[in-house]
Design a protein around this nucleic acid. Structure first.
Lengths: 219, 219
DNA sequence: TAATTTTCCTCGGTGTGACTGGGCACTTTG
DNA sequence: CAAAGTGCCCAGTCACACCGAGGAAAATTA
């Protein structure tokens, strides 16, 4: 049974390796996302390596073993199911759930998670549009594009967010850019890559590159 | 923010002091119910005393401060609300919930608990018939009697259980003695205090003193 | 009240989990 | 190949929880 911290490390490593497939996950990157020191990371990597949860060879970056990947995906599964619960059942907003789910994802009862999944109607996506891994770790990789990759004339429907920070989500709410919103790219400012978009065939707004790099759409 | 272990100690102390009001809670009793050694208890009592959660004077037993009582009651509140959730929403049996709730009671978000309470319809009792403390720590002391205190000729409705162990609850299920069952005491065996009872005006059974000491009824 | 028993405090110490600064080894890059 | 950057290792810290042993205090009994 992995500790909370171990689950967090494995989750972070999984997410980093997904973010840039092929590129090995570095100690410094892990330290950065987990807000800790490289020395602490080395320490934990050694332990996780000994437990057979990842392949750790010094100076060689790191990759999850089958078991490590399972733990990471199970943790993500728990996190996202609890997020669905918080939003759909308890009436939380999508910008309020992250921290609470961060705590709930460490509950260990498998039966609890199975029953929760059933209670929620076996949801496929969490409130931010991210796919929920199955019990066996299977996860569907969504076919999304970043809004920042759209060219003028293209359009799409908002399907997911890359960033789940409170300010970003609140901005989206205010701008009318929640999941399901339709976006048409009207123009792109070459200087800073900001985009002029029409939302839901209605309001026209300018969004920064910072925003469009964190928003996914599909056709 | 109290640690899991601190919450468990405070809860145990609260329950012990409720079980025998007036009698001071002893180090040995605490060690017993928490399955640990007196030396460990002394250690923790000192720490909890320093934090202002209980009055600790050596050799003098122990009593909770206002703050300590609040933490204990809040922990019990969380435990019981999650038990209701598990039974009413996720379809757990009343004998399956204790361990899971033991883990969930340590979740710290106050907002979560408030929303959960609302979602459950502000329940007053948990699945074992125990009252759920309010957010401010108010708790209604139920007007129950132990079945073991009934005399032949008396009757009552099963309202709560004192023991929540799996074997006990499963026995009750099998015997038809779930909450709400009607009990008439027909006879009492003087030798071992076992009782002959009629359940729901129907089946007649013999129950041991061990059982009747853990079952509450009301008129 | 004295003797005995019980309780439980104190002390010193253990183990685990997680984190860290500093020095040095290794890799990468120019 | 040298410099720069990265990451490892060591030794140590800190917090938390636990525990055995021995003796002090309190309770009980004689």
């Amino acid at each position: 049974m992995p500790s909370h911290t171990e689950e967090n490390y494995l989750k972070a490593i999984y997410k980093l390796s997904e973010a840039q497939p092929g590129v090995e996950v570095s100690t410094n990157r892990i330290a950065e996302v987990l807000q800790t020191r490289p020395a602490s990371v080395t320490d934990m990597l050694r332990r996780l390596g000994e437990k057979g949860l990842l392949h750790y060879e010094r100076y060689r970056g790191v990759s999850l073993t089958h078991d490590g990947r399972r733990v990471a995906l199970l943790t993500i599964r728990k996190h996202r199911l609890w997020e669905v619960f918080l939003v759909n059942k308890l009436g939380f907003n999508w910008d309020e759930v992250h921290d609470v789910a961060e705590e709930m994802e460490h509950l260990q009862s498998p039966l609890l998670i199975r029953r929760l999944d059933e209670f929620l109607g076996f949801p496929q996506l969490d409130p931010h549009g991210d796919p929920i891994p199955a019990e066996d770790g299977a996860i569907v990789r969504p076919q999304h594009r970043l809004v920042s990759d759209l060219q003028p004339g293209e359009e799409g429907t908002v399907m997911a967010v890359k960033n789940t920070s409170v300010p970003f989500l609140q901005y989206l709410d205010k701008a009318g850019l929640s999941l399901g919103a339709k976006i048409e790219v009207l123009d792109k400012v070459a200087f800073d890559n900001s985009l002029e978009i029409r939302i839901n065939s209605n309001k026209v707004t300018l969004i920064s590159n910072e925003i469009s790099c964190n928003l996914f759409v599909a056709d």
